[in-house]
Design a protein around this nucleic acid. Structure first.
Length: 456
DNA sequence: AAAAAAC
């Protein structure tokens, strides 16, 4: 389906032509026509499917075609969960509005009020905001939402996860009830259905078949003995020529910082990205990744969703995410725009259940790989089914990643790592492998805690 | 419990 057939405004089409965008993605083809008719939309779509254009193009068309009602107040409002995402949406909106004279402003936290007020001092047509800062401005009567014609919720499920439900509903109540509402979410559970029924009127349902995992991302698993082992494996990958740009996910902000520093010390172009960094630095870091000044980005889950950098070759889960859903979002940072990507996860024994949930959720078995010379001493297989024994003590073994003692040397020398991974395929072996299935399941013993358990 | 997001 070409954009020209969808009924977009000529100035919008002109911008698309200038960027040589001719073909609409499935979400765009499905969402744009009803949006142009003024229908509310409930869309389930992942990032990377072109959903920003799916809501922005019809909104801009509306702004171009219909005269503003009265006062100089924003006509389109986009809410996004994170500041990075808001910035990306703002940039995209400005591209699409290139031939229109529109003032498009992002309203996010971390930006000095003075600068923001300056941006808001002239009439604004489109606002892209994170909920907190927007509410702040609205309650100070700095922003008036009375003229909003289109309200867009981007990554609505993420906003709910982050506790923005009340904020989102408050903001929606500040918009006229006659507005059009476009809701985009990756998942549709009961909570989301509740929000949708509050905010949408007779919505057109748009569903793009979301593969739980993109088929063009190869998923690999490396068993890790301990933190030190993970670090060595990370250093190994950092030096591999086939690893171009990579995002490395850590469990905590501190881990992200220390791993980035470690990589930088080893001479790699690496930097951290997490929510404790000031916004300017976050933006600059992401930009440096885009331009290639940085090759390795060590991030918390702030970067798990929505971040769109084209040429990420690898995602490395230094620590597994807490939920299987987060896993899918993380690995979706690679293999974008039709490219292929590789997702590498490090997992210790304590991660068996998480791993099991991930494999069940993605309906895939992560292929076990081994780095020659860095073989794990104690491989295992995904647990969580029904481990033998009375209580599920495996959950309580060892500290969680965020309880690590960073000052101390982690459990150090257990002698040289023997080539014990006889059943795991070597790094250069076939991509897929079956899970070894000898009865190692209860090697922890159920009743009593393992003697002097290592962290893993 | 981590992380994210308003000052």
């Amino acid at each position: 389906m070409s954009f020209a057939e969808l009924g977009l405004h000529p100035l919008v089409l002109k911008a698309l032509e200038a960027f040589e965008y001719t073909t609409a993605t499935p979400v765009q083809a499905a969402a744009i026509p009803p949006a142009l008719q003024g229908r509310d939309i409930l869309a389930t779509a992942e990032t990377g499917t072109g959903k920003t254009a799916a809501f922005m193009l019809p909104s801009l068309t509306r702004v171009a075609e219909l005269p503003r009602l009265g006062v100089a107040a924003p006509r389109v409002l986009v809410l996004a969960p994170t500041r990075e995402l808001a910035k990306q949406v703002t940039d995209a909106a400005r591209k699409y509005a290139r031939f229109m004279k529109l003032n498009i402003v992002d309203v996010v936290g971390g930006m000095p009020y003075r600068d923001q007020l300056r941006l808001l001092s002239r009439p604004v047509d489109v606002i892209v905001a994170t909920p907190g800062r927007l509410i702040d401005h609205v309650s100070r009567r700095r922003i008036d939402l009375d003229a909003v014609e289109v309200l867009i919720l981007d990554e609505a499920d993420r906003m709910l996860d982050m506790g923005f439900l009340d904020d989102v509903e408050t903001i929606a109540k500040c918009c006229p009830p006659t507005r059009q509402t476009l809701l985009f979410t990756a998942t549709l559970d009961r909570r989301m259905a509740g929000l949708a029924s509050n905010l949408l009127r007779n919505p057109e349902r748009v569903a793009v078949e979301t593969e739980a995992t993109s088929i063009n991302v190869e998923q690999r698993l490396h068993h890790a003995d301990d933190l030190d082992h993970k670090r060595k494996m990370l250093q190994h990958f950092a030096t591999q020529p086939e690893v171009g740009k990579a995002i490395i996910f850590a469990a905590t902000k501190r881990d992200a910082d220390s791993l980035a520093e470690e990589l930088a010390d080893a001479g790699h172009a690496a930097a951290a990205l997490h929510g404790d960094m000031d916004q300017g630095k976050r933006n600059r870091t992401l930009q440096r990744l885009r331009t290639g000044q940085i090759r390795l980005l060590v991030a918390t889950d702030v970067a798990a969703r929505g971040i769109d950098v084209r040429d990420i070759t690898h995602v490395i889960n230094f620590d597994l995410p807490r939920s299987a859903e987060d896993y899918v979002h993380r690995i979706g940072r690679t293999g974008r725009a039709g490219a292929s990507g590789i997702a590498i996860s490090f997992a210790g024994r304590a991660d068996r259940e998480t791993l099991f949930r991930i494999e069940r959720y993605t309906n895939a078995t992560l292929a076990v790989h081994v780095i020659p010379g860095l073989e794990p001493q104690r491989p295992f297989h995904a647990g969580g089914g029904r481990p033998a024994g009375r209580n599920n003590s495996s959950r309580h073994n060892g500290p969680k990643p965020w309880q690590r003692n960073h000052g101390d040397k982690p459990a150090g020398h257990q002698g040289p790592r023997g080539p014990r991974a006889d059943h795991a395929r070597s790094e250069h072996g076939p991509a897929r492998s079956e899970r070894p299935d000898h009865g190692r399941r209860d090697s922890h013993g159920a009743g009593k805690p393992p003697a002097r358990a290592k962290a893993w």
